[in-house]
Amino acid sequence: MNVHAVAAIYRFEMARTFRTILQSVVSPVVSTSLYFIVFGAAIGSQIQTINGVDYGAFIVPGLLMMSLLTLSISNASFGIYFPKFVGTIYEVLSAPVSHFEIVAAYVGAAATKSIMIGLVILATASLFVPLQVQHPFVMILFLVLTAVTFSLFGFIIGIWADGFEKLQIIPLLVVTPLAFLGGAFYSIDMLPPFWQAVSLFNPVVYLVSGFRWSFVGHADVGVEVSLAMTAAFLAICMVIVSWIFRTGYRLKN
């Protein structure tokens, strides 16, 4: 294990975050806080409870999960895409670093950033809405598992993208709609049966549901199913990353 290399890449990526702290940290915290203020505190006070939970508290896990997904993807995709774009990737590819170490360093840094920001958002949310975390260990487990899984997904997007448009296309056109339709603002129990069934094809539903269970003790789908679905998506991402490095796809000629 080339520990020094993993540490070098990890530190480099973290330093990039702190160099652009307004964009990387402050911006997502402010925009998510606006959701809490508008939907949680302002509109939420006019909406009746859902499954006995205040609407403001109900949307916190979903919003947090939405931020975690998008941040993990953007952090990891940009982290690997930028050196590809400017050409400095040559240094990483010519270094005595295994594929696993490269992924661990980039994905680890991206996930760390997302978790950090997620916790800041959580702390900010507690200022606007009444908050409780019934199962803190499960909450942390979902936070870490989601951050790692979607950082891995972002890493794949960063390697696949050969331009800035492609870098944005999946987060904007696929992930954001799935996140909005994944039950962040509502319980899928509130949907007609047909749309409930359709929603079960949306992987974000499982993430939001499981994560919400850790907060309020109530979920749209079983927490075990949520964990299993997240782990399955993680496994799929790992298989794709493994294939990328084995074939050199978009990395080597």
Binding site: N2, H4, A5, A7, R16, V86, T88, E91, A95
Partner: peptide, 23 residues
Amino acid sequence: ELVIDGFETVWATVSFSRGLFGK
């Protein structure tokens, strides 16, 4: 090609390379 991360300092980028090669 002249490929280098322009946002890093000289010290940081050279130190990064040393770590990357396991030193």
